[in-house]
Amino acid sequence: MKRLGLFALLAAVLAAGLLLPDFQRQVSIGTGFVAKQMCSCMFVGGRSFESCLPDMLPMMDDIEAQVLSVGEGVRAWVPLLAERVARHQAPHGCTLEP
C-alpha cells in the first residue's frame, strides 16, 4: 500500500511537470537560481555552503543543492523535474549551464 502511495506521488509530480509548462519553467528557473547563486556565494563570495543556504529565496526551499565533486561548482535539482549546474572559473566567476 505504501509503495502504491509513493508511486502515485511520483506519477503526480511527473504529470505536473509535463502537463503544466508554467510549473516546469518555474522549477527550472528556481534550480538555475540556486545553482548559480550558491556557486557565486561560495566561490566568489568566499562563504561556506551552510552560510549561503539561508540567502536563497524561501520559495526555493524544496530545491536540493550540492557542491560538485569535480571542479568548482554547484548542482541544484528537483527530482524528476529539473537539474542545473553552475561552474566557477576565476577571474570570471560562476556561469550557469543550460
Binding site: R25, I29, K36
Partner: peptide, 17 residues
Amino acid sequence: DGADTFVGRLLFGEGSA
C-alpha cells in the same frame, strides 16, 4: 510575481545561456 518573470527567465532560465 514568482520566478517566471522576464528577468527570472533571463538570468536563471531559458535566456541565461
